[in-house]
Computed example of a mutant assay.
Amino acid sequence: MHKLVVDANKKGLRLNLKELFQYKDLFLILAYRDLRVRYAQTALGLVWVFIQPLATLLIFIMVFGRAIKVDTGDVPYPLFAISGMAAWSYFAFVLAQAGDSIISAQEMVKKIYFPRLVIPLSKAVVGLVDFSIGLFLVLILMIIYGFTPSINIIYFPLFLIMAMISALAVGIWMSALTIRYRDFKHVVPFLVQFGLYATPVGYPSSLVMNNLPDWANILYYANPMVGVIEGFRWTLLGQQPPSAYSLISFSIIIILFISSLFYFKKVERIMADVV
């Protein structure tokens, strides 16, 4: 019996992937539409993509770099902070956009059939634009400070994939939960704001590990982005590799992603009726 259930789940997964591939054109259209209208009719346009991370970086420099004087080793603090911000900004964007994506597209959801998962998935592509800007700022600061990228950069794609899966996992969960419980529309901004400081974006994770007991460190690393940001800094800046606790973050990412797909599939049947 257990084998039949597993085989059925695998078959369903294959069919879902095949169906998603059949709607790849819709996926690309949604991503292109979001890119085109995001900064439409704004005076500064794409300049906003630079203003937002630079403003946050300035705040971090004043608070963590100057006031608290966080120790970042041989890495200049602005470079240290922007490398974490690049990863976090991508996660925050996809979470916010994917979490509200089904509600925002409710008219389309009601009128035509297509795999609803296409909607939150398309946000992961749109977020890569901001992420690319973040990496560009990292490169600029590396040039300014004469900092050479680490040889570990060959592992960068792996942590980029983990960042994408992490953002989509939480975003898909939120998009499905928001269908039934509209209160989650207010939870997403709180998660983004709280997570910025609960994640080692402006400070090294060692600062937390050295001042907390083991049980608290385990709880801290339950945040999926802690391990991802550690990996980003290891690949880009050659800092300490992700700690053993990072396995907790990566395990949480996989669990969240798989469970989000199953829950989304369950809710998908009633989406057109309740949005």
Rank of each mutant, 00 (worst) to 15 (best):
A222I: 13
Q239R: 12
V5K: 09
M164G: 11
F131Q: 02
Y203D: 08
P213I: 04
N217Q: 09
L135F: 09
F114G: 11
F136A: 14
F50P: 07
L158W: 09
L35C: 11
L141W: 07
F264E: 06
K266A: 10
G195M: 01
L160S: 00
I68E: 08
I68Q: 11
D130T: 09
F194K: 07
S206K: 15
P149R: 10
K123L: 06
G73W: 00
L139C: 11
I270K: 12
A81C: 03
N152D: 07
W173D: 05
R33I: 07
M142P: 06
D74M: 13
G45Y: 06
V226G: 04
T72P: 07
L158G: 04
N16Y: 15
G127S: 01
P189C: 03
V275A: 15
K265Y: 10
R36K: 14
A244C: 04
P241H: 03
A43I: 14
F80I: 00
L46D: 10
K69G: 08
R182L: 03
F262L: 14
L196S: 03
K10C: 07
R33G: 08
A81S: 12
W215A: 08
R36Y: 06
M85I: 09
G238D: 09
L4H: 09
M62W: 13
A8F: 12
L160D: 02
W215R: 04
A92D: 02
V94W: 03
V5P: 01
G127V: 01
I179S: 14
V75W: 08
W173Y: 10
S89K: 12
L35N: 01
A124N: 00
L4N: 10
V49S: 15
A81Y: 03
S175T: 14
R182I: 02
D130F: 02
K18H: 13
F27W: 10
T72C: 10
Y77N: 07
F147W: 13
V208T: 05
A124S: 14
M174A: 15
L54S: 11
D183R: 06
G195P: 01
V267L: 00
I179V: 15
A8D: 10
S205C: 05
V70F: 03
P149N: 09
V49K: 12
I119W: 04
L236S: 00
F136T: 15
G231H: 06
F114D: 13
M164Y: 02
N223S: 09
I140K: 05
T178Q: 13
M162I: 12
L35R: 02
N211G: 13
A169S: 14
V138M: 06
V37F: 07
